[in-house]
Design a protein around this nucleic acid. Structure first.
Lengths: 100, 100
DNA sequence: GACATATTTCGATATTTGTTTGAATATCGA
DNA sequence: TCGATATTCAAACAAATATCGAAATATGTC
């Protein structure tokens, strides 16, 4: 049996969201500019439902944000969370920090 | 059914390795200095088998390296791969790159 | 060689996760 | 309001993954 996962580790949700090929494709597509959900589904070559699922996970991790535009929903990269991820990883590069 | 995953996306293995609570604990423990596999299993409070499994994934992602020391295997953070991860994420912060 | 210690590998099981299909919701235009 | 388009939600399923105990491997000691 898998034991109680307990409280979530910092960065867990974030890196888990990044660790999927389709989601990486979505994020890369958004580097070229904001896109609607349907447009993203086309570019990533995945069904609309699947794409929506992944967008939910990316949203939940804070990596993207949405706004309405008519019938479409436009997705945007949330750069501040990328910065946050960079800072987390940078912690490992600082020597001697984190000892207890 | 899940379609052919095809070729692996850059960074996929890396972020997937980072997106697990136990592995994040292992990496954090290693920030304080190199540790043997058994010592890591104790600190992360997981069985030796499970810990070895996670260490294999971290090794496969390049995040840690091993060396023998008698009967023990000492694990070390591989900082250059952390730098690599930072660079990947930094790509998202550079405006106007990645358009096609 | 026999035995103890440290770690990995194997086999089994339970949980998680990505995907699909179909239904539900929301917006727009006629 | 009706119909079309865009997106999300929900149920179901298969594949992937995390976990453990036990067996296998490797090293050191007697």
């Amino acid at each position: 049996m898998k034991p109680d996962p307990g409280p979530e580790m910092p960065g867990e949700r974030l890196f888990k969201a990044l660790g999927d090929p389709q989601r990486l494709r979505i994020l890369r597509a958004l580097r070229g500019g904001d896109l609607a959900a349907g447009e993203l589904a086309d570019r990533v070559a995945v069904s609309a439902a699947t794409c929506s699922h992944h967008l939910g996970i990316l949203r939940d991790a804070g990596l993207v944000r949405v706004r309405r535009d008519g019938q479409s929903r436009i997705y945007t990269l949330n750069l501040s969370v990328f910065e946050e991820a960079v800072m987390m990883l940078t912690q490992f590069l600082k020597p001697g920090v984190g000892r207890r």
